[in-house]
Simulated assay, not measured.
Amino acid sequence: MNKNKKIRVMLIDDHAVVRVGFRMLLSISPDIEVVGEADSGESAYQQFEQVRPDVAVMDLSMPGMGGIEAVRRLIARDKSVRVLALSAHEDTAHPRRVLKAGALGYLSKRSAPEELLDAVRAVAAGRIYLDAEIARKLAMHDLGGGANSVETLSEREFAVFIQLARGQSVQRIAEILSLSPNTVGTHLYNIKQKLGAGNQAELTLIAVRNGLIET
């Protein structure tokens, strides 16, 4: 990237106060500018072509399609999209899946503020960036071997699982993920089989235990 060219950033988070805080933090750096904001994955997808940021800073825990699905759709449309994912979750499933979806970076919202600046610069340069704690957990998980039951879910099953755990109906999930209700029903059956869950309440409990949704 041209050293004299500012890194254009789009902030995607459903909390306005969070976006304000990130905007203020990023504005401190002379080589970064915030050129757009969105409060959902759907809104980000709609605005992206017009804004054309160098880096999309994407919260994963948003209503609607959520961050991972938004990353998948953006990169399916344009392989050059560079995404830095942010999350308050402490699990390893979210970073694994969003990196697999095509994000270049993953940063915990509990990280030091200056780390956001480093992460944005790294992702803008096309480098993978993981905060130290997330990298440690991923490494420990790999050393431990095996996958827990949640990680046996396919990418689409995981997306449906998160929506179900949030209490969404099959019809609503079909609308959010652009699937037919029958397809969602099939995923639901497979999810229950893989996770050993009998109903939606048990799915929610599994998601909470794995740190995949906030209580």
Rank of each mutant, 00 (worst) to 15 (best):
A85N: 06
I162F: 03
D13N: 15
P63C: 11
H94Q: 09
F161W: 04
I128H: 15
A124N: 12
I28A: 13
T215S: 14
R82W: 04
T152W: 07
H141F: 09
L84C: 02
N182M: 13
K6G: 08
I162V: 02
G102A: 01
L104F: 02
G196F: 01
G105M: 06
R127H: 15
E157K: 00
S169W: 01
V18A: 07
I128F: 14
R82Q: 08
F158I: 00
K5P: 08
S180Q: 09
H141K: 15
A56E: 05
Q200S: 10
E114Q: 15
A76R: 06
L179D: 04
I213N: 06
Q168K: 10
R8N: 10
G144A: 07
K192H: 10
G144D: 08
G36E: 06
G105Q: 06
E42Q: 12
L25Y: 08
I176L: 03
L104C: 03
P53S: 13
L143W: 00
G64M: 12
Q46A: 13
N182T: 14
V55L: 08
E133F: 15
G41T: 07
V71S: 08
L26R: 03
V71F: 05
Q50C: 13
M62E: 04
L84H: 04
V170G: 03
D59V: 11
A56F: 07
L138E: 05
V57E: 11
R121C: 09
E157R: 00
I68Y: 11
E175C: 10
G196D: 00
A139Q: 12
D14Q: 14
A56R: 10
N190F: 07
L212W: 02
V83N: 01
S43K: 11
K79P: 15
K109C: 12
L177F: 04
N148E: 09
H94D: 04
A147R: 12
P30F: 04
L25T: 07
K194F: 07
L99N: 01
G66Q: 06
